[in-house]
Nucleic acid binder design. Sequence first.
DNA 1: CACCAGGCAAGCC
DNA 2: GGCTTGCATGGT
Length: 288
Amino acid sequence: MKKYVEIKGYSDDFIPQHIFECGQCFRFARLQDGSYTIIAKGRVINVSQNQESIFLKNATDNDVADIWYDYFDLGTDYSKIKTALSVDKHLNESVKYGNGIRILNQDLWECIISFIISANNNIPRIQGIVERLCQTYGDEIKAFDNTYFSFPDAERLANIKKEDLSFLRAGYRDSYLIDAIQKVSSGEVSLDGIKNSNTNEAKNQLLKIKGIGNKVADCILLFGNGRSETFPVDVWIKRSIGTLYSEEMKDLSVHDFARAKFGDLAGYAQQYLFYYMRENSSGGNKNG
DNA sequence: CACCAGGCAAGCC
DNA sequence: GGCTTGCATGGT
């Protein structure tokens, strides 16, 4: 079996650093050579890239067809999206900076749990909590002479109690996690139902879970359910939109303004903006 | 010591 | 509907 797959044709529309450091994903590690080892879809792969090609180590052609083509959103033309967004002066700056960003199609359940944890939290600590959850309840995955752990599904977690989660050190989010596990494992909130609903209905289903509000629901829909028209508004986006477009947005909310301005490309616009603002904030503090 | 972190729920009005 | 407050934990 071949140990890696080479994919040509994406040029600078695919830069692992931009894809994984832009805040959409929590289970990755940057290696010294600049490549990224990631855990997703029950697999572990290493992702690198040069001018001509993307390299996926520990993946086969079949894996690419079945999993990674969709995961990395390889069917979407990001050059086209970037050209369209760059008409706007501020987006032009952000797109130039994060030109290798792609919005991943991650696992819906993993996004539900991860973004519940993300609320009022910082990215390094979110990553630590997610890893502890996986190490305790996930399946072992052997790869690259190491042991990794898959993200446990809702059924696997169905019988745990709030007291069992203290090792996560997730604080008050424990009860939110329990509510998500209970509602999804019981079918009260159906993952397939969310996937098969329109965006409004999908969001209403997510909002039934404690710990999921507007912003977390939008992140889940964007990163775990392919709803690229959603525009999650967090503190960074609120700040940046508020200053960059202060006159233009008039009396609209940040969310409504962005949805009107960027239309079906709102989710992409959000990621380019978020990455640019975070990486270029004064003091350069990113808690990591 | 204070303040912050990809917000949210609950309690007000 | 909108606005305020408390919130576990860990870092600076």
